[in-house]
Amino acid sequence: MQFSFNGEVISLEIEKSGTNFSSSNMQLEYSPKTMWAYVNGRRLKVTVANHKDEWWVHIAGQILKLEYVEQGANTADETGGLIAPMPGKILEVLVVEGQEVTTGQPLMIMEAMKMEHKIVSPLDGEVSALYYQANDQVEGGVTLMEIQETD
């Protein structure tokens, strides 16, 4: 079974015996929602919540979000697509298609929750596609534009 954390796929050898699950240096007694784990002799409370493919885990103040990965699926980020970080409204588009941009350059200004947010370029490249214009309402997670990386 594969899950990803921060975009990295994790897959470990797990041994199962009844409701007891263990890997090389830790073990966990499963129960719904809240369970106990032992790591190097330390007892830790673990809380798990699930929504669709998202798995949220709380361990001693640490919160991790894992994502279920279908076997054989490609999780690598293939395109330079820029994703809307949240639902909101596009206030201004600061670039045009075909424009060269540099890392950190502001591309769009979005408004959400009455605050302005700058969308900046994550890489050096060329704007290869623009999907939205000023005054458009966008959902969180949609691709706003594509940037082709320049070598």
Partner: peptide, 16 residues
């Protein structure tokens, strides 16, 4: 080891 434990707990919850 927190990532590993999170994986273990998720694996357990998923398979149960």
């Amino acid at each position: 080891d927190m990532i590993e434990l999170a994986y273990l707990a998720t694996y357990a919850s998923h398979s149960m």
